Computed example of a mutant assay.
Amino acid sequence: MTTRFGASALAHLIGFAILAAFAASRPSPGQAQSADLVLCDRLAADPADPDKPADVRGVAEIAAADVPTALKFCRSAAGGSRRALYQLGRAQAANQQMPEAVATYRKAADRGSSSAMVELGVLLATGHGIAKDDDQARRLFSRAAEAGNPRGVVNLAALSKAGGPQADPVKSRALLAKAAEANSAEAQYQLGLMMADGTGGPQDDVAARGLFEKAAGQGHAGALERMGAFSLSGRGGPQDKSAARAYFEKAAALGNDDARAALKRAECPYVIKDKRGNVVTNLCF
C-alpha cells in the first residue's frame, strides 16, 4: 500500500510539474490565453456543454485536488471565452463559493452560455445558494432550450410538471431533434425516449433505437440501458440477449440503477411477491 501511495503522489506531482512547465513556456499573450483555456478545459469542462469542443472530454465533477488549479486557469481564460467563464463558475461551485458561482454563471449566461443558463436555473429552481425563483428558472431553461441545449429542454419540462405553464411537447421534441443533429448524446437519449413513448409526435421504436444506439456509442449510461432493454425484447430491431447483457453491464458500470436491476433479473429470474403483488425478492438458481 505504501508503494502505491508513493507512486500515486509522484504521478500527481509530475502531472502538475508538466502543467507548470507548459504554462511557463507560453511565449506570447495571445498564446497564453489559449494555453490557459486548454488547462481550464482539461480540469473543468462540462461533458454536456454544447460549447465544448469535440476533442475535449470534460469531467462530470471537478476533482477536489484540481479545484485550486481550475480556479486559477479558468479565471485567467474567462476574459476571452464564455466557456471558460462557465467553467470558472463550476470550479467556484465545487469550491463551495456559491455567491461567486451564481455571479459567474450570470455573466456567462449574459454572454450566451446555454450551460450557464441551465446551471443558474437549477440553483434558482432548488433555492441552492440563492433565493428560490421558479419563474426566473423557467425563463433561463427556456432560453437554454431555444439555444438547443438538451438539458434546458428536459429541465423546462421537469419544472412544468412541478407546476406552472406546461412545456409544449411538440416544441420540446423539435428542439431536441435540433440538438441531436449536433451529436449531443443527451439530446439523442431524450429524443429517443419521446419517440419511444410517442410524446410530442408519432411513436417510432426503430428511430428511438437508432438514437439510443448513437448516444450509447458516446457512453451515455441511460442510452446504454435503453439499448439493453430494446435488444433484450427485440423492440425496434433484432433481439439479441448477448448484446443486451453487454449494454446492461456497460450502463451498470457507469452507475445506472435500472441496468443493475436488469442484470439481477437475468441472473435471478424467479420473482417472489407478497399478496399485494409487491416484489419481495428474486430467487437465483
Rank of each mutant, 00 (worst) to 15 (best):
R260I: 09
K132W: 03
A145Y: 01
A65W: 00
K52R: 15
G236N: 11
F5R: 15
R106T: 13
L10G: 04
A266P: 08
Y86R: 14
K161V: 09
G163M: 09
C40Y: 11
S184E: 14
I272V: 15
V59P: 01
A182Q: 15
L176P: 12
L191Y: 09
D197S: 09
P99Q: 04
A24Y: 10
F230G: 00
D133N: 15
V38Y: 04
E119P: 00
A78V: 10
A185T: 02
L224V: 04
K132R: 15
S8H: 12
E186S: 11
C268P: 03
D257E: 15
A9W: 13
L19E: 08
A196V: 01
G152A: 07
Q203G: 06
A221C: 09
N183K: 10
V153E: 02
A64F: 00
A94N: 07
S34M: 06
A78P: 09
Y189I: 00
L193M: 14
S34H: 09
R111P: 00
L124C: 06
C74E: 03
S142N: 12
A196G: 12
S115D: 05
A261D: 13
L88P: 07
A32Y: 07
Q136G: 02
T2S: 11
G236V: 10
L43W: 13
A253Y: 05
E186M: 14
A187S: 10
D51S: 10
S114R: 03
D55N: 11
G127T: 09
A77Y: 03
A60H: 04
L37N: 07
D258T: 08
D51W: 03
D240L: 15
G277S: 05
A216D: 07
A162H: 00
Q87S: 11
E225K: 12
G30D: 10
F141L: 10
A108W: 04
R173H: 08
